[in-house]
Design a protein around this nucleic acid. Structure first.
Length: 922
RNA sequence: GCCCAGGUGGUGGAAUUGGUAGACACGCAGGACUUAAAAUCCUGUGGGCAUUGCGCCCGUGCGGGUUCAAGUCCCGCCCUGGGUACCA
């Protein structure tokens, strides 16, 4: 046996795990469960880069650790396989997206297997598999058949709503529903036609059809979510996006706004993650106040969080999209208003975002009455008011709101101060809270009290009520695309109906082209012979990418089940995900939608836990280091990094495989592209030095590092250890292999511990010395603590120290080395298996138990001595064990010195505390 | 603008509740082995002053503060990364 050979060892054990089904997990009530989950990848054509496995390695370490800690671990993997790139590719090449997707998945699986993950592939899910999306469609049907009852604060079946309608109409129903529902009695309900009834019910269902203003991307022929748009253009492809009204399936996530917010409290997520979600949900408490329009029979309702400033209202503003604008505009303002409204509507999102600072608006000519003062204030229109939030009407208080102030100053509207102390300020909005002045019945009160008083007053007089507003909007669920789950709906006389559950899955039909039809219908409009029961038209839109990913974590528990999306038994055992690892970019998308669907399924009794992800860790992105060359403008000359200031240059990304230590291989560069064949170089010190940039790892920057290459050169164990060693999991960090030799060296040293100088296995059965046991128990303790707090980088250091120490002691005792193998096995499983076998074990190291930490090996020379200082602060001091406590106390009291470390022992700390403040409690 | 996270040697990063700052690793320098190289091993490595005393001074973005003691807590700034975008 020669030196450690990672290639043969790693393939041997990967084969072993596969043939022995080592990681298959079955429900086992005798054992505690642990569910460790990664956000499943979208299988893109580019394959995995070294950033992808970062989170997978972490969750794999935890999974393997939990197994040797005696847990039954569910550690699955799957693919988020519906999506735009495959479809885009299909449009370009005519190839069915299922084929490209399958190829990509195959490649991903090979790459993943190279790294030695302990995934249970028997539970694999692919969202584009009809056996999987059958249940995505099924959940859609449950949502369609449900409504949200605010009285019980949970979702209920639509039948229960119908029976309420039949007995008492809808006046007592407190539901999450469309705003403009007319009240009806039980008799009126019964008198409705079937069609009318369906129309009414659609306004209550948790998924419903609506004329929504959507972001329509003409170039892609689809609707995009707000989070799919960056800077007014599509995130993918950068195509322009316009606003357009379309019939869309919607998800009534707003019904769950409050629970999505309050449940955050109990989740073990990072503060910033919770913050992001709660900002997105955007709960604000306030009230609605009614303003009568002077000389009209119309009342406008404004939402405000600051009713206390009502006496400072100097004008009202409507959103340009407001329905009553025409009615409320006076004849002489008509022209100006029309011009303004047209302009505001035509301004694209992009333009609106570009100039947040500019102020624009127009006077309607009408006035409204301040219900508190009875005074008239002018009614304006401005695009800083959004139609979609609150009521689309804002009561403007220039003295306490920045935008109102800017607007008022711009249009010379009056500013009435309502807070004491603002007189002295140049900009009164700098002080937003304080004692009220110029405020009639609120004078002299503090803002907080005045808010309550104002609301009470408004309620009493009947012109207002307390109201909670949310920023979060219902989610658009329709995509004008092919490569997604078909919506299991057909239309009978224009009424949407669910297909029969027996007919699920509703499979994607084959079509000739993947583009929208000539008449503008979604691609599914091209399908021939695709009608429900041969006669009714199917819904032609498909579900968005987040549909499948909103529940896939439940399917892993029982992936083969053909009778239910998950069995009650499986869900009762595996419960929620114990550890979920993935990127922050899903904060307001996937993570919110999943919580929504999970809550819904919980309400309807299909699962047993309210929240899907107990503990969430967001791994940081591994960035790439791109290399740049500098082309002298209008030439084919390239100037070295250090000399580029003397020329006018353009930086060009070059493939990092042509660059070593920032020096360009000029011959390879010339052969890279035909236009570079006659490139000339201006060198410094005889070399061409490249510039560099840290940025996202991406094909287009030529900076992608493939994990396969690292595995080939150093082995999977080294890659695993190194990715962990690179720094804290959550942190963003550039990929570099500068330190990878240190980790490789660690594995070689570990291997050497088990072998003599000639490479023969050489482990002794002699009893370990005290010193040796101390070294290993220190490592056991530290390794356990580190992994429990997900500090993987420090545990790698712990192993290195342990191996260094054992090497220095020339320790080759079985008793010690066996423990070492087990604690290192989650990180470097292949070498651990090999050593475990060499030690004479028949079974996988996965079946081992984590070594029991024994305090007594560490406490031999120190113990903890707690003292309290001034009765408030407390600290624990390690003191030498051979020093009697009495002597320590004497030292504290007499010498003003708590302790001294005995020579040569660690830690050798001397803490001097004046005796007047020391009170020994032990 | 607002919200969140962070700023520690030449580099990646340790320091779990306030208690030896810089663990571990890379890099670098010197040495051993070698004809030589690779590999391996040993020594040194925050800065400055001493290096005939193994000792002294400074040091965790900047400026203050609390404390016997601050990288850690408080106040005020600066910078970097992330989120968000007129939310009344």
């Amino acid at each position: 046996m020669a030196d450690y050979n990672h290639k043969s060892v790693e393939s041997k054990w990967q084969e072993y795990w596969k043939t022995n089904d080592t990681f298959i997990s079955k429900v086992d009530p005798a054992k505690p469960k642990y569910y460790a989950l990664d956000m499943f990848p979208y299988p893109s054509g580019a394959g995995l880069h070294v950033g992808h496995p970062l989170g997978y390695i972490a969750s794999d370490i935890v999974s393997r650790y939990k197994r040797i800690k005696g847990f039954n671990v569910l550690h699955p993997m799957g693919f988020d396989a519906f999506g735009l790139p495959a479809e885009q590719y299909a449009i370009e090449t005519g190839q069915h997206p299922a084929i490209t997707t399958e190829e990509n998945i195959k490649r991903y699986k090979e790459q993943l297997e190279n790294i030695g993950f302990s995934f249970d592939w028997s539970t694999e899910v692919q969202t584009c598999d009809p056996k999987f999306y059958k249940w995505t469609q099924w959940i859609f049907m449950q949502l369609f058949n449900s409504w949200y009852d605010y009285n019980t604060n949970k979702a209920a079946s639509i039948e229960s709503l119908i029976s309420t309608f039949e007995t008492e109409g809808n006046s007592n129903v407190n539901a999450a529903c469309d705003d403009d529902i007319e009240t009806f009695s039980a008799d009126e309900w019964k008198a409705f036609s079937e069609q009318e009834k369906e129309q009414v019910l659609l306004q209550y269902r948790l998924t419903y059809l609506s004329d929504a203003v959507v972001n329509w991307c003409p170039a892609m022929g689809t609707v995009l979510a707000n989070d799919e748009i960056k800077d007014g253009v599509s995130e993918r492809g950068g195509h322009p996006v316009e606003r357009k009204k379309m019939k869309q399936w919607m998800m009534r996530i707003t019904a769950y706004a409050d629970r999505l917010l309050t449940n955050l409290e109990h989740l073990d997520w990072s503060e910033s993650m919770k913050e992001m979600q709660s900002n997105w949900i955007g709960k604000s408490k306030g009230c609605e106040l009614d303003f009568k329009v002077a000389d009209h029979d119309i009342t406008l309702t404004a939402f405000t969080t600051r009713p206390d400033t009502i006496y400072g209202v100097t004008y009202l503003v409507l959103a340009p999209e407001h329905d009553l604008i025409q009615t409320l505009t006076t004849a002489d303002q008509k022209e100006a208003v029309e011009a303004y409204v047209t302009e505001a509507k035509n301004r694209s999102e992009r333009e609106r975002m570009a100039d947040v600072k500019s102020v624009s608006g127009v006077f309607t000519g009408s006035y409204v009455v301040n219900p508190f003062t009875g005074e008239n204030v002018p009614l304006w229109i401005a695009d800083y008011v959004l139609a979609g939030y609150g009521t689309g009407v804002v009561m403007a208080v220039p003295s306490s709101d920045d935008r109102d102030y800017r607007f008022a100053t711009h249009f010379d509207l009056p500013v009435v101060l309502v807070i004491e102390g603002t007189e002295a300020l140049e900009d009164p909005t700098e002080k937003k809270h304080g004692v009220m002045i110029n405020s009639g019945i609120l004078d002299g009160m503090k803002s907080a009290d005045a808010i309550q008083k104002a609301i009470d007053h408004a309620v009493e007089k009947g012109f207002g009520k307390a109201k909670v507003n949310f920023k979060i909007r219902d989610a658009v669920f329709s995509r004008q695309r092919y490569w997604g789950e078909p919506v299991p709906v057909y239309f009978e006389d224009g009424i949407p109906k669910l297909i029969d559950e027996q007919d699920l899955p509703l499979a994607l039909p084959n079509i000739d082209k993947y583009k929208p039809t000539e008449t503008g219908e979604p691609p599914l409009g091209r399908a021939t012979d695709w009608k429900y029961k041969g006669q009714y038209d199917y819904e032609l839109t498909t579900m968005p990418g987040w549909a499948g990913s909103s529940w896939y974590f439940l399917r892993y528990m029982d992936a083969q089940n053909e009778d239910a999306f998950v069995s009650q038994e499986a869900v009762a055992y595996w419960k929620e995900v114990d550890l979920y690892i993935g990127g922050t970019e899903h904060a307001t998308g996937h993570l919110l939608y999943s919580r929504f669907w999970n809550l819904f399924l919980y309400d309807r009794g299909f699962i047993k836990h309210e929240e899907p992800f107990q503990k969430l860790i967001n791994q940081g992105m591994i960035q790439g280091r791109s290399s740049l060359v500098y082309r002298v403008n209008n030439t084919n000359q390239f100037v070295s990094h250090g000399l580029r200031k003397d020329y006018e240059t353009t930086a060009i990304h070059v493939d990092i495989s042509m660059v070593r230590n920032d020096v360009l291989d000029t011959e390879a560069f010339k052969q890279w592209r035909p236009d570079l064949a006659d490139a000339e170089f201006i060198l410094e010190d005889g070399k061409y030095v490249c510039g560099s940039e840290i940025e996202k790892m991406s094909k287009r920057y030529y900076n992608v590092v493939n994990p396969d290459d690292i595995v080939e050169k150093y082995g999977a164990d080294t890659l695993r250890l190194y990715e962990m060693f690179l720094g804290p999991l959550e942190q963003f960090k550039p990929w570099n292999t500068n330190g990878i030799d240190g980790v490789a060296k660690f594995l070689r040293k570990s291997w050497s511990l088990f072998h003599d100088g000639q490479g023969n296995f050489n482990v002794s059965d002699e009893a370990a010395t005290k010193e040796e046991l101390k070294v290993i128990h220190k490592a056991i303790k530290k390794a356990e603590e580190d992994i429990e707090r997900f500090s993987f980088n420090t545990s790698v250091s712990t192993f290195m120290i342990c191996v260094n120490d054992l090497t220095a002691l020339k320790c080759n005792k079985r008793e010690v080395l066996e423990k070492l193998v087990v604690i290192v096995s989650p990180y470097a499983p292949h070498i651990a298996e090999e050593l475990w076998q060499l030690l004479g074990n028949q079974e996988s190291v996965i079946k081992a138990t984590f070594p029991q930490f024994d305090e007594s090996y560490l406490t031999e020379d120190t113990f903890e001595y707690p003292i309290s200082i001034n009765g408030k602060m407390r600290t624990k001091i390690h003191i030498a064990v051979d020093m009697p406590k009495e002597e320590v106390e004497k030292m504290v009291l007499e010498d003003e010195t708590v302790m001294k470390w005995t020579e040569g022992k660690t830690p050798k700390k001397v803490i001097v505390v004046p005796k007047r403040i020391v009170n020994v409690v032990l």
